[in-house]
Design a protein around this nucleic acid. Structure first.
Lengths: 151, 151
DNA sequence: CTAGACCCTAGAGTCGGGTCTAGATCAACA
DNA sequence: TGTTGATCTAGACCCGACTCTAGGGTCTAG
């Protein structure tokens, strides 16, 4: 069940360019083999790894860190502690990201709700306009727009 | 209560370079005023906006999208629906990110737990080694390493 | 009066992560 | 047989978001 680079691209969602690039960057667990004519052959398991890779990437792990991990794997047994440490570090990192995003969501939801209210009431014209000539008492100052805390 | 660019940099966590860059990119709600000698003066409310800006950035909103938003604000009232739409779009985006990160976390926790188990049991040497000469029955194939689903 | 801290502009450089191009090879089909 | 279409390599290019440099001004303290 050999796969061409095109098939792998389709099934992994990465471009053929990206696949070649990843290979150059040493991101494959097992070196990509070639047909006698030089063309790459991949296998199902490469797709599995690419799926993980993609997840790691989309969670902000750099290619450099992925390479580090896969290098440890290629070195074989004996460095499990290091692998574990690396994984834990990224896990912490992702957890921190989630917390940050949740905070941002609080802010966003707050702002969205306020806009919804005012748009719904049709009062929108008199609000949220820091520099309108008519600003006066009715419009909110810029720092209203900029409030950070959702409460 | 005027603030110099240096003070704003300190208090916002952005570099003076970044502040000038943001200004060029049109990311300030109200245009940054200058002293007669050309130096920028900022105010407290700019810090508020910068704090939001930073949150938006760290949640993956591009400078281009932030500029779009702030341009709507500068245009004054009448475009609240557009602002709302823009905010909602980003909110959806952040929510999707959180879901993705949660999935990634499932994978990571799973892998971490397995590594912990095996490191703890001191059996680590016989596992996780796709290419070791000794591989045989004891070691896990690469696709074990690459499993995606945590269950 | 001068040193040092801070600021200015325009524009070049950097970095990560790809993406694309040129020029060549090769297989299959009409 | 010639034309697709997929692949190959090396290396150039791109984009976003800064970051830094050069060359200069300004302010304050000693």
């Amino acid at each position: 069940m050999d796969l061409s680079i095109g098939e792998v691209a389709q099934r992994s969602g990465l471009s053929v360019h990206a696949l070649r690039f990843y290979e150059r960057e040493g991101l494959f667990a097992n070196p990509v083999r070639r047909l006698s004519n030089g063309r790459r052959i991949y296998h199902e398991e490469d797709l599995g790894w690419l799926a993980i890779c993609t997840k790691l990437r989309s969670s902000g792990m750099s290619l450099a860190m992925i390479r580090q991990y896969i290098e440890l794997v290629r070195q074989g047994p004996g460095n499990e502690r290091e692998r574990l440490e690396l994984l834990r570090r990224h896990q912490d990192h992702v957890e921190a990201q989630v917390r940050e995003l949740q905070e941002t969501l609080d802010v966003m939801r707050h702002k969205v709700r306020i806009y919804e209210d005012h748009v719904a009431r049709g009062e929108a014209d008199r609000l949220w306009n820091p520099s309108h000539p008519d600003a006066g008492a009715c419009s909110e100052p810029v720092d209203r727009l900029c409030e950070v805390a959702p409460s």
